[in-house]
Simulated assay, not measured.
Amino acid sequence: MNNNVFDELPLLLAVPHAAEILGISRAAAYRLAASGELPVRRLGGRVYVVTSELRQLVAS
C-alpha cells in the first residue's frame, strides 16, 4: 500500500495547512495562491488549496 501525506487529507486544505505540508511559510503559500501557482478555490470569502491538484503539482 502506498501511504503518503495526501492519503488522509480532505478535498480542500486551508492555505496554512498546505504551507505546512509543503514546508514553506504561510506568507509564501498565500503569495503562491495569489499568483495562481497554488491551485485554489474560494468559498465563503476563504481561500482553500485543492488537495488533488496540489498532489499533482508536487508529483510533477
Rank of each mutant, 00 (worst) to 15 (best):
A28Y: 03
S35C: 04
G36R: 05
L32W: 11
Y30K: 04
L57G: 01
R41K: 12
Y48N: 02
G45Q: 06
V47I: 15
R31S: 05
P39F: 06
G36F: 04
A28F: 09
A28C: 05
R26G: 01
V49N: 00
A27R: 15
Y48C: 00
R42Y: 11
A29W: 07
S35N: 11
R26A: 06
A27K: 14
A34T: 10
L32Q: 08
R41H: 10
R42W: 04
Q56L: 14
A28D: 08
T51I: 01
G45E: 03
A28P: 04
Q56G: 15
L43F: 12
L57M: 14
L38R: 02
G44Y: 05
G36I: 07
L43I: 12
E37W: 06
R46W: 05
A27D: 13
G44W: 03
V40Y: 05
A28K: 09
T51R: 14
V50Q: 02
V50M: 00
G45S: 07
R42M: 13
R31E: 04
A29T: 09
A29K: 03
P39I: 03
A28L: 10
A33P: 02
V50I: 07
V49C: 10
L57T: 11
R41E: 13
G44K: 07
T51D: 14
T51F: 11
L38I: 08
L57I: 14
V47D: 13
Y30P: 06
E53D: 15
V50H: 00
A34F: 10
T51L: 09
L54Q: 00
G44E: 08
L57C: 10
L32F: 13
Q56W: 14
Y30T: 05
R42H: 13
L38T: 00
E53Q: 13
S52Y: 01
A28R: 11
V47T: 15
V50T: 00
G44M: 01
V50K: 07
R42T: 13
A29M: 01
Q56I: 13
V49Q: 01
L43N: 05
E53M: 10
L38Y: 12
S52N: 10
E53L: 12
L43K: 12
P39D: 06
V49R: 02
R26S: 05
P39G: 03
T51Y: 13
A27S: 13
E37D: 12
V40M: 01
Y30W: 14
A34M: 11
V49M: 08
V50C: 05
R55G: 10
V50Y: 01
Q56S: 15
R41G: 04
V49L: 08
G44A: 02
S52K: 02
R41A: 13
V47C: 15
S52W: 04
V40C: 03
S35Y: 09
L43R: 12
R31G: 08
A28V: 03
G44Q: 08
L54G: 07
L32V: 02
S52M: 09
V40N: 08
V47E: 15
R26W: 06
Y48A: 06
S52T: 09
R26M: 01
R41Y: 10
G36C: 08
G44C: 04
A33K: 04
P39T: 01
R46I: 10
A28N: 04
L54H: 11
G36N: 07
Y48I: 07
R42S: 14
A33T: 01
A33L: 04
S52Q: 09
R26D: 05
Y30S: 00
Y48M: 02
Y30R: 07
T51N: 14
P39N: 06
